[in-house]
Each structure stands twice: as structure tokens, then as C-alpha cells.
């Protein structure tokens, strides 16, 4: 039993239940809003980049310039600077990841859509699973299975009994904590951001229905909600960048030779 605030008609604060959206068609659980948003993002991204690359010319149009600067950012600032000389193989994956996450995050503040797809935890889980499989595959291909496992489990230059203490930590870091933190960081940021916006906008609306004194306070709640929307925009771009950057860092670590 918790304490209830605003006792008169009971303001219901936004909770995790606000993220369980009902299915759109019948009771088929595969037709909820996040699923449609994910499909919509794929359509939007492919249309945008096909249009921007179709009439490519030496003097770029505005659209071509926009498309190319996103691509250039991922290729030069993320892939090339982090991975090094073998980066071209991984650009398609990193580019897809970055644009997909960015578009789906931005759905959180686009009017009428207003739901960040990544605040449903299964989407980040799947993306992190892809990254997990890719960086382990690359490492095993590059180093061989046994040397790779040996590099993970046995730090050089440690007295033998200490391995009992350290090896579980290393294994857990590589196989559990890395994919888990990768996905949970994205999920938690989107979830908390959406909840924060809900609190301020719904709270402002509720204050507007109260007595005169409360009505006077409500514009502040709305103003804060709008300010937080811009803050959310920043967080959404940053999280898409961080997810891609960490993927690139893990791939770079898989390709790096013994340090």
C-alpha cells in the first residue's frame, strides 16, 4: 500500500502500465503500436536514403547532402576512427544500427507518434544480441576459438590461485554484462525519458482541471514539459550514438591483437 497523492479525484501518476499498449487488431499480440513504429521506421529510412542517393551528382542537392552527411558521420567518425583499417566491412551494419535506433528514438517526440519504440525492452535486446553474435564471431574468426577464450579468461602476470577470483568476472563481463548493459542502457534512457514527459504533460493537464491556484501553476508544468522535450531530443541522439559507438568498440576489441 503506498501513499496516494491528490486525493480528491485521484490523479493517477503515469506508470509502467502506460507502456503496455493494447493490440491494434483484435488480440493479436504482434500488432501493437511499437511493432508498427518499427516497420514505419524501416520504410522511412529506406525511402529517405533511396531518394537521397538516386540522383547523386557532383554538386549535391540538399537531400543528397543530408543523406551523405549522416553516412559520412557513421563511416568516418564511428567506423574508421574506432575500428581502423578493416572498417569498411562493418560500415553497413553500423549504419543500419545507427539510423534504425535514431529514427525509433525520435518517434518519442514526434507529434502523434509519440512513443519511443526502444522503451519496449525486447527491441534493444534483439539489437544487442546481433552485436553480441557479431563481435564474438569476428573475434573467433580473427584469433581462433581457443586463443580467444584464453585471452578472455587468463590475464597474464597473475599468480595462479587468483584466477579463481578473476576468471568468473572476466567471463561474466564478456558474455553477460556487455550485451545486457548495452541493451539496458538504451532501454532505460528511452523508458525514463518517456515517463518523465508523461509526468509533466499529464500532470499539467490535471492541474488545469483543479482550483484556480492550481490552474496558475499548470503553465509551468507544460513549459517544463516542453523544455524536457528538447532535452529528450538530445538524449535520443546521444543514445543512438553511444549504442553504435560501443558496438564499434567491441568489434575493434575483437580485431585487436594482444595488448
Amino acid at each position: 500500500m503506498g501513499v496516494r497523492l491528490a486525493a480528491d479525484e485521484g490523479f493517477k501518476p503515469p506508470s509502467t502500465a502506460d507502456f503496455n499498449l493494447p493490440p491494434v487488431f483484435g488480440d493479436n499480440p504482434f500488432t501493437t503500436k511499437p511493432v508498427f513504429l518499427a516497420f514505419l521506421s524501416v520504410i522511412l529510412i529506406s525511402t529517405f536514403f533511396i531518394l537521397s542517393a538516386r540522383k547523386a551528382s557532383i554538386v549535391p542537392s540538399k537531400l543528397q547532402f543530408a543523406g551523405e552527411s549522416v553516412y559520412g558521420f557513421v563511416r568516418n567518425d564511428l567506423a574508421r576512427d574506432v575500428i581502423g583499417h578493416e572498417f569498411m566491412r562493418f560500415v553497413p551494419y553500423l549504419f543500419t544500427l545507427f539510423t534504425f535506433i535514431l529514427t525509433n528514438n525520435l518517434f518519442g517526440i514526434i507529434p502523434f507518434l509519440q512513443f519511443p519504440t526502444m522503451s519496449r525492452v525486447s527491441f534493444p535486446y534483439v539489437l544487442a544480441l546481433f552485436t553480441f553474435v557479431i563481435f564474438h564471431y569476428v573475434a573467433i574468426k580473427h584469433k581462433g576459438l581457443m586463443p580467444y577464450l584464453k585471452e578472455i579468461m587468463f590475464m597474464p602476470g597473475v599468480p595462479k590461485p587468483v584466477y579463481v577470483l578473476l576468471t568468473p568476472i572476466e567471463v561474466a563481463t564478456y558474455f553477460i554484462v556487455r550485451p545486457l548493459t548495452l541493451s539496458l542502457r538504451l532501454f532505460a534512457n528511452m523508458f525514463a525519458g518517456h515517463l518523465l514527459l508523461l509526468v509533466f504533460i499529464l500532470g499539467g493537464e490535471h492541474l488545469l482541471q483543479g482550483v484556480v491556484g492550481l490552474k496558475l501553476v499548470s503553465p509551468f508544468a507544460f513549459a517544463f514539459g516542453i523544455a524536457l522535450t528538447f532535452f529528450e531530443f538530445m538524449v535520443q541522439c546521444l543514445q543512438a550514438y553511444i549504442f553504435t559507438l560501443l558496438t564499434a568498440l567491441y568489434i575493434a576489441g575483437a580485431l585487436a591483437d594482444e595488448h
Binding site: 568468473p168 568476472i169 561474466a172 563481463t173 553477460i176 554484462v177 556487455r178 548493459t181
Partner: peptide, 12 residues
Amino acid sequence: IVGYLLSGLIIW
């Protein structure tokens, strides 16, 4: 570093 600290705490 954050990953190591987290997994050390969680495992042990």
C-alpha cells in the same frame, strides 16, 4: 571499467 566492476559485484 564499469563493466568489470558491475560483473564483479554481481558474480561474487
